[in-house]
Design a protein around this nucleic acid. Structure first.
Lengths: 224, 224
DNA sequence: ATCGCCCCTATTGTATACAATTTGCCGCCG
DNA sequence: CGGCGGCAAATTGTATACAATAGGGGCGAT
């Protein structure tokens, strides 16, 4: 690991996702350098990456701001994901080895467990969920596709609102994964694509609702 | 324009596309700094961008090499473009203003002209072609989509082999555009998507053939 | 002769100093 | 009182020096 540059990326990312910032806030390279504990040079590389991921935006005069996320943005991301991950699932259906399918099954069992127990372990769910999707993307053997999806998947809004999911939402997600695995076992690419499509599209709506709720909460807090 | 950084990007890019390099060649930041006439700092930013566009690759030890392009890579790019630009065309069909459609028509007339005259003006064709596609992408109003496509569109292989197209290939391309415009005028999103799909898929095959021819030529040259 | 180790060199990574640009403020003039 | 100009502060951009790390070649041991 090219230490400083990567830690800068991770720390700044965590800082942005930690909710200590508001959309539109200006950030200076120096401030970020302080946060990350490195000099401005690696910070610049980190901000470039975060800019590409659209967590940060730059004004015309090259100043850095925390990105704002409209409902359309979220819609856009899920639409693109649906298209691209659907494609990935299709390719994966032909390419997944039996062992990999078993691995997906194990991951998904963990996912089930995480939400079935008395107190759902959301963090564990999210981690397993990410691994699940990454495994499929990887099996698609399309490096550019993987790269694009990496930019798209864990976006801040996603993470911030994920915790407002109901347990039922999460269980439904896990059931989607079950069906996806069935499609892979059957080597049915169309089925896989279709399941992935509805999986993500539903996630979008769960999301949009959760985000709306979160926005209301925030409004309430601000009103205090 | 942040001068140095951008000129570095452009010059290095031109250097790579100019055919003076071979896939697998190692490039050092210093060498690139010389070529671009700037210091290593902006060169680093440029190489990061070129890396994201996969014109350059980095070894495990962070050394920089000229990327290699297999037939599968080209296939992958066109498949992704087909999916994404098809989606863009679909959205554009609903969103293009009448004026923008007229503009597309003008651009395409220029495109026709460039290949109809006695000596085809390939450069002009390619420029107009890019503007044509960019206009559609822009009309789709999906910033992430635009960003992703920007990474995908003018890849080196594309540019390097574009000149081996036959005049008939180019004319067919222009005819595709005609049909696309008709689809836009009819506000028929499905039609637009379908035309865009076949347009790009055919381009891929023209390409793959041209690339094969180019590879043969190169082999012949090397054999001298 | 070959394998492995070590040192030297090539190359990338980071920090810092300085240059260029932009912004916002303040005073001046109409 | 409003707008314009310009100056000062803040911020980003670039260069350079130094640090860290990886690769390659030579030398010795077996």
């Amino acid at each position: 690991m090219s230490s400083a540059s990567d830690t800068a990326y991770e720390k700044i990312r965590a800082f942005l996702l930690g909710g200590e910032t508001h959309p539109g806030d200006q950030l200076t390279e120096e401030k970020l350098a302080d946060i990350a504990g490195v000099s401005r040079t690696p910070v610049r590389e980190a901000t470039r990456r975060l800019e590409a991921e659209m967590l940060l935006v730059r004004s015309a005069s090259k100043r850095i701001f925390v990105a704002d996320w409209s409902r359309e943005d979220i819609d856009e991301i899920f639409t693109l994901r649906q298209m691209l991950e659907g494609h990935a699932a299709e390719r994966a259906a032909h390419r997944l080895t039996p062992q990999a399918i078993e691995r997906l099954d194990r991951i998904n069992r963990e996912l089930h467990e995480a939400v079935t127990r008395d107190v759902p372990d959301i963090t564990r769910f999210l981690d397993a969920n990410r691994v699940f999707h990454e495994t499929i993307t990887e099996a698609a053997r399309s490096p550019r596709l993987a790269q694009i999806l990496a930019m798209l998947v864990d976006q801040p809004v996603v993470l911030r609102t994920a915790r407002s999911y109901t347990v039922e939402d999460l269980k439904q997600s896990a059931r989607d994964h079950d069906e996806l695995i069935a499609a892979f076992r059957a080597r049915d690419a169309d089925w896989a694509r279709a399941v992935m499509g509805s999986h993500l599209r539903r996630a979008f709506h769960t999301f949009a609702d959760a985000a709306k709720g979160a926005a209301n909460d925030e409004g309430a807090e601000a009103a205090e």
